[in-house]
Simulated assay, not measured.
Amino acid sequence: MTAAARTASSPRRRRRRAGGVTLLEVLVSVAILAIIGTLIYGAFDGMSRSRAGISRISDRYHQGRGAIARISRELQAAFLSRHQPADKNITVRLTAFTGEDSSPTDRVDFTAFAHRRLLRNAHESDQCEIGYFGSRDPERDKLDLVRREAKFIDLEPTRGGVVNVLAEDIESFDVRYLDPVTGEWVDSWDSTQPAAQFERLPSQVWVTLVLNGGPGGEPIKFETKVPIAMQVPIAFGAN
């Protein structure tokens, strides 16, 4: 082959080499794309996990605040009544305020002007029985704070009605009561017993609710002091 022919064929060979890629270049490109894809996936996965964690913690705070707000609102509406028939044998209702000290959850039951009538023409008033106490969930083996409400007041102010979960997975529920006579906080209350706080209501109720599942796995504590406005039992026309 002459020098002129070699010169003429050399650019064609260079063009053929420039028009394609080698296997090594393909492997390097695939490796780079895989690394970039892994980094992008990791970033999105981390963002998704962070968002889920923040949402879960936000739900816990929302649930705790909602529970405390409802307990406070209904405790403020607690009342006692001395209205009873002259014949005690025909008594059909008993108003009360009782608080039981136990661990890890206390229990409080009371009568209150807190019922909301949801159905038109329903034969209900704003008077009801309400209770708050802990109940263990058998499916998840966790302790929940539940709310009991009976639309009608009967002779058993600590039983009956419908029970619903108010706050899930709690660590503790503590209730204390300020005695207006002694000015001291006590752990239990019973307005039905002459040896206790007969026909009396506490002037304030100190409620502490602790939920599991807070930031970093730490519990979340909610606390409030609720004043009870109606200190004297209702006795219009009673002797």
Rank of each mutant, 00 (worst) to 15 (best):
W189A: 02
D154M: 12
G214I: 02
A122K: 04
K151C: 11
A150T: 05
A167W: 00
D179V: 00
L178Q: 05
G134N: 01
F152C: 08
V205C: 01
D154N: 12
L119W: 08
E168H: 12
G160Q: 07
E156P: 12
L211T: 06
P202E: 04
E149D: 11
E149H: 06
E124P: 13
W185T: 08
N212R: 09
F173K: 01
D141T: 13
N121G: 13
E149R: 06
P180E: 01
G183L: 02
E199M: 15
G134W: 03
P215F: 08
S203H: 05
R117A: 14
P219G: 02
F173E: 02
P157M: 03
I153T: 00
D169T: 03
N164M: 14
N164V: 15
E156F: 14
L201P: 03
R140L: 15
R159P: 10
R117M: 15
D154A: 11
E149Y: 06
T158R: 08
A122N: 08
S191N: 07
W185G: 09
R140F: 14
N121D: 15
E168M: 09
S188P: 08
L119M: 10
A114D: 04
A167K: 00
Y132R: 03
W206A: 14
R136E: 15
I153L: 03
R200C: 06
P202V: 02
G161M: 02
A150E: 04
R176C: 07
D141G: 13
F198G: 09
Q197S: 10
F133I: 08
P215R: 02
K151D: 13
V163S: 04
T208S: 08
V186W: 01
S125R: 06
N212S: 12
C128Q: 12
R140Q: 14
E156I: 15
R120V: 14
R176Y: 05
R148S: 07
P219Y: 03
F173L: 01
I130P: 01
A122E: 11
R117C: 15
R140V: 12
F110T: 00
V175W: 00
S125V: 09
G160K: 03
D169G: 02
V146I: 05
F110A: 00
G160V: 07
E129P: 10
S203Q: 06
T182W: 07
V162C: 12
Q193V: 14
G134Q: 00
R176E: 07
E139C: 11
D190L: 04
F173W: 01
R148M: 06
D154T: 11
A196L: 11
P194D: 03
G217F: 07
S172L: 07
I153P: 00
E129R: 06
E156R: 15
L155K: 11
S188D: 10
D137L: 09
D174W: 04
V162A: 13
F110E: 01
R116Q: 13
I220Y: 11
D187F: 10
Q197M: 10
N164Y: 12
H115V: 10
G131R: 02
D174L: 06
N121I: 10
A150S: 09
A196V: 12
L118P: 07
D179N: 05
A122S: 11
P215V: 07
